Simulated scan of single mutants.
Amino acid sequence: MPRVNVSIQVIPRVTGDQDIYDIVDEAIGVIQQSGVKYEVGPMETTMEGEYDELMDVVKRAQEAVIAAGSERVITIVKIDYSPSGVTMEEKVGKYRQR
Rank of each mutant, 00 (worst) to 15 (best):
S70K: 02
D19I: 09
V86P: 11
Y95V: 13
K37C: 07
Y81S: 12
D56S: 13
S34D: 03
G29V: 06
Q9A: 14
M88F: 05
K78D: 05
G16P: 12
R13P: 00
P42S: 13
Y38M: 09
Q97T: 13
V24I: 15
I20W: 09
D25Y: 10
Y81L: 07
E53I: 14
E48K: 02
Y95F: 15
I79E: 09
R96D: 02
Y51V: 10
E50A: 09
V30A: 07
T15A: 09
V14M: 03
D80V: 11
Y21E: 11
G16V: 03
P83Q: 08
G85V: 06
A27F: 02
R60Q: 11
E44G: 04
K59T: 14
P42R: 08
A27I: 05
M1T: 07
G35I: 09
R3G: 00
K78T: 10
N5L: 15
V30I: 15
S82W: 02
G85T: 10
S34P: 01
I11A: 10
V73Y: 08
I79M: 08
Y51F: 15
G69P: 07
V58A: 04
A64D: 06
V40G: 09
I20V: 15
G85R: 12
S82D: 15
I74D: 12
G69I: 10
L54G: 03
G69E: 11
T75N: 09
S34R: 04
E90P: 07
V57T: 06
Y81T: 09
D56P: 00
R60Y: 00
Y51W: 13
V36P: 02
E90T: 07
P12F: 05
N5P: 01
A68Y: 11
V14R: 04
I28V: 14
A27R: 05
I23D: 01
T45V: 08
V30M: 06
I23K: 02
I20G: 06
P83L: 05
I74S: 14
E48F: 04
Q33M: 07
Q33S: 15
P42K: 01
A64I: 11
A64G: 12
P83T: 02
K91E: 01
I74L: 15
V77K: 02
Y51C: 10
E26C: 13
M43P: 10
M55E: 08
E44I: 04
G85C: 13
K37Q: 14
E89C: 02
I76M: 10
S84D: 14
G69H: 08
V65S: 06
V36N: 08
I23A: 09
M47C: 02
K94W: 01
A61N: 02
K94P: 00
G49M: 10
P42E: 05
V65W: 04
I76A: 12
E26H: 08
